[in-house]
Amino acid sequence: MFEARLPQAAVLKKLVEALKELVTEGNFDVSPSGISLQAMDSSHVCLVTLQLNDDGFEHFRCDRNMSMGIHFGNLSKILKCAGNEDTITLKAEDNADQLTLMFESANQDRISDFDLKLMSIESEHLGIPDQDYSAEVKMPSAEYQRIVRDLTSMGDTVLVSATKEGIKFSTSGDIGTANITLRHNTTPEKEDEQTHIDLKEPVALTFALRYLNNFAKATPLTPQVKLSLTKDLPVVVEYKVGELGQVRFFLAPKIDD
């Protein structure tokens, strides 16, 4: 059987909210080392990967590997019935066709359980090589959210260029052009408010803003986001989920004809 217990439902609620519009369904692959997911959007332009490590759970048991096909919109409906502070337990028998979600309030005076019907989902897996990136930028996730939102009011695509001057986001559209540059900045006392630019070589890539905006739905998960860029490769936008693991969004760049 599979059983996983998290002390705060809020984490799972935020995770599902972050990915449900991008990927409508996907397989939760459970194994003794945790829960993972790899799902592409319908146009195969972006990919979401999720890794939740067994030791990040309050309790984790998985007797045999299972692939649980989940409709994220439906999972989201169920998770809306959980309080943020509820303890949440996920349970499934081996080869089950449903996933049980149990919510317990902090003082244990309210216990509810919901069964989610599982789906059979055929999904292609992509091999993502371990990569040394030309530029890795850590910045406040709220800053990332603001930049991609602001630029969306001007254009459809963004040129992201990392140089020793900083990371620059540029767009243009019918009403004009916009450039936003963030510099390496370790001045703020709080590490969460700092911007770290680790540059091996300058790199510039063009992306669709619509997807970068969608990734920002993960902002409530964590105060920092990491962007990894290499020429001719998808950008990786990574949000850490405390000690539990991380969610990564990969977006294919625009390519010249």
């Binding site: 592409m40 990919l47 992509l126």
Partner: peptide, 14 residues
């Protein structure tokens, strides 16, 4: 004008 790349252009399908 640049075209939107698909993930299969960059990663191997397993």
């Amino acid at each position: 004008k640049a075209n939107q790349g698909r993930l299969e252009n960059f990663f191997t399908v397993l």
